[in-house]
Computed example of a mutant assay.
Amino acid sequence: MKQALSALDRLRGCRRGSTALEFAIAGPVMLLLIFAIIEDGLMLFAQSVLDNATRDASRQILIGNITTASAFQAKLCSDVTSFFDCTKLQFNVQASAVGFPPSVVATSATAPVSAAVFGPGTGGQYVTVEVVYSRPYMFPWIQSIAGAGWTLMSTQAFQNEPFS
């Protein structure tokens, strides 16, 4: 009995392996948080790239340089070259005589670019440009926790210049 107590006392006083045990408990949570922060940072960067590309392409509609869907798509794709899969971009451009038309982009953003609505309007018309991109997660195991991915949307609303 005395030997059993002394072995138990030795085991209680032994600190070997405690660091590994603590890391085994806290490490996965810490790594999950680090990867989630990286994923959020990439999403914010992607949203910024999409906003800038939408603004630049919309500016070309506003001044009358872009009048076709293919030219609009080419301008968008040139601004998001390496960070986006351009075939997954969905956009809608709608003009109205008075005020801004309602939102026309589906929340799923699964339609290809070729199915986009494109009506840049004429000089003086109000135009709404919406661009949507469904971005998958960079880390697949985050997808299993959080869902399908990010749906990024950028919107521009403006009145065309009085071009002829």
Rank of each mutant, 00 (worst) to 15 (best):
Ser96Lys: 13
Pro120Ala: 07
Ala111Ser: 13
Ile145Ala: 12
Ile145Leu: 10
Phe100Met: 06
Gly119His: 09
Pro140Gly: 15
Val98Thr: 08
Gln94Lys: 06
Val104Ile: 08
Thr128His: 01
Ala97Asn: 12
Val129Met: 02
Phe118Gly: 01
Ala109Gly: 14
Tyr133Phe: 09
Gly119Trp: 00
Ala111Val: 10
Gly124Met: 10
Met153His: 12
Val105Gly: 01
Tyr126Gly: 02
Trp141His: 15
Thr128Ser: 10
Met153Tyr: 07
Ser144Cys: 01
Val132Trp: 02
Phe139Lys: 00
Pro136Ile: 06
Thr128Gln: 05
Val132Gly: 00
Thr128Pro: 01
Thr122Glu: 04
Ile142Glu: 05
Pro101Gly: 03
Tyr137Met: 12
Gly119Tyr: 06
Pro101Trp: 00
Thr151Asn: 13
Ser114Asn: 07
Val105Leu: 11
Gly147Tyr: 03
Tyr133Lys: 05
Tyr126Ala: 13
Ser134Arg: 15
Phe100His: 03
Ser144His: 07
Ser144Thr: 08
Gly149Ala: 13
Ala146His: 02
Val131Asp: 01
Ile142Lys: 01
Ala148Arg: 09
Ser154Leu: 11
Thr110Ser: 15
Ser96Met: 09
Ala111Lys: 06
Ser96Asp: 14
Ala148Thr: 15
Val132Thr: 10
Pro101Cys: 04
Thr122Val: 10
Pro102Trp: 05
Leu152Pro: 04
Ala109His: 05
Val104Leu: 10
Ser114Gln: 14
Gln125Ala: 06
Ser144Val: 03
Pro101Tyr: 09
Ala106Ile: 09
Pro102Leu: 05
Gly123Val: 03
Gly123Gln: 05
Val132Lys: 08
Val104Trp: 13
Gly124Gln: 12
Trp150Ser: 06
Val132Ser: 08
Val98Leu: 14
Ala109Asp: 08
Val104Glu: 09
Pro101Met: 06
Pro102Val: 14
Phe118Asn: 02
Phe118Cys: 00
Ala97Gly: 05
Ser154Glu: 02
Tyr137Glu: 05
Gly119Ser: 11
Phe100Leu: 13
Val104Pro: 07
Thr122Ala: 13
Ala95His: 15
Leu152Ser: 04
Val131His: 04
Tyr133Cys: 07
Ile142Gln: 07
Ala109Pro: 03
Gln125Phe: 11
Gly149Glu: 07
Gly99Lys: 04
Phe100Ala: 06
Thr110Tyr: 02
Thr128Ala: 11
Ser144Lys: 09
Pro102His: 03
Glu130Leu: 00
Ala109Met: 07
Tyr137Lys: 03
Met138Val: 13
Val129Trp: 03
Ala116Pro: 03
Trp150Pro: 01
Pro136Cys: 10
Ser96Arg: 08
Gln94Ile: 11
Thr110Lys: 06
Val127Tyr: 01
Ser114Ala: 08
Ala109Lys: 05
Val127Trp: 00
Gly123Leu: 08
Val98Cys: 02
Gly124Asn: 15
Gln125Cys: 03
Pro136Gly: 08
Pro101Leu: 04
Gln94Cys: 13
Phe139Glu: 00
Ser96Cys: 06
Leu152His: 04
Pro101Ala: 10
Ala109Tyr: 10
Pro101Ser: 09
Val104Ser: 11
Gly123Ser: 05
Thr122Pro: 00
Thr151Leu: 14
Val129Cys: 03
Ala95Thr: 09
Pro112Met: 07
Ala111Asp: 14
Val127His: 00
Val129Gln: 00
Tyr126Asn: 11
Gly147Ile: 13
Ala106Thr: 14
Met138Thr: 13
Thr110Asp: 10
Gly99Ala: 07
